[in-house]
């Protein structure tokens, strides 16, 4: 039993060691900007196009639920314009970034792992290397930078959609006036409400792309290996999002 636990701890530490090495290699490849700069633009467009619909969907429904939930909590106890406060803070600071990025772990992370995993098992990665390309600067850096830059943008759109549906729900289903909703929204507003959520999104984007690349490039053995890498990428990055989320809360709230 004890051995099992020590083995698992050793495995976990080894995992972090590999992650550290990988990030080190990646940082070194940043010098190669002539290679990655153009490719990053391509990846940004891809991530944007892939992610926007699902992100808007997730945030929009969250907005509806939050508005109804806060009416349920506040009825009779707190002035109803607090619905705007709760919807605003919750979507901007927590639910927007976290729910959207969890969904994107399944979308962006999985597609990166599957793509690079397929390239690995079909020897396309080897072929790139023999053509004197550095796979870090050609494959990894563009995806990681693109995700880090695009995730906050996508989350910003999603948060906007969530606020809109929260507001629509308030005026149609809760009988809250637009004026009251906005009053609540502005009540305890600080600039931090916005940058906190966007900073988190950046860190989630970085993590999702990094883990997707790592799992993809370490794929072993055929189609089954690609499937395994993809699943692992999603599971590990979803876990990392939750851990990071707590970490940011401890550090910055």
């Amino acid at each position: 039993m004890q051995k099992v636990i020590t083995d698992q701890v050793a495995e976990l530490l080894a995992g972090f060691g590999r992650l550290g090495n990988f990030v080190g290699d990646m940082a070194r490849s940043l010098r190669d900007f002539k290679v990655w700069l153009g490719l990053t633009a391509v990846q940004m467009r891809r991530i944007g196009v892939d992610s926007l619909p699902i992100s808007l969907l997730v945030a929009a429904f969250t907005g509806v639920v939050l508005a109804l939930l806060s009416r349920y909590i506040f009825t009779g106890a707190v002035p109803m314009y607090f619905v705007g406060t709760l919807v605003g803070k919750a979507i901007m600071m927590e639910l927007g970034p976290v729910l959207v990025c969890l969904a994107l772990a399944g979308r962006v992370g999985a597609s990166i792992a599957a793509e690079l995993g397929t390239m690995r098992v079909t020897e396309q990665v080897d072929a790139l290397e023999t053509l004197a390309y550095d796979i870090q600067s050609f494959l990894v850096v563009p995806r990681v930078i693109a995700a880090t830059l695009m995730f906050p943008v996508i989350v910003a759109f999603a948060v906007t959609a969530g606020l809109l549906t929260g507001w629509l729900t308030s005026v149609t289903l809760i009988d809250l006036s637009t004026v009251d909703f906005l009053k609540g929204l502005r009540l305890f507003y600080q600039f931090k409400d916005i940058w906190f959520g966007l900073l988190k999104s950046m860190s989630f984007g970085f993590t999702i792309a990094l883990i997707g690349c790592m799992k993809g490039l370490n794929t072993r053995g055929g189609a089954e290996g690609v499937g395994r890498a993809t699943t692992q990428a999603v599971v590990v990055s979803a876990g990392m999002i939750l851990v990071l989320d707590a970490l940011w809360a401890v550090l910055l709230l």
Partner: peptide, 12 residues
Amino acid sequence: IGYVFQFAALFD
């Protein structure tokens, strides 16, 4: 070095 891979390994 030019390397011709067994299964071509073209970038699909």
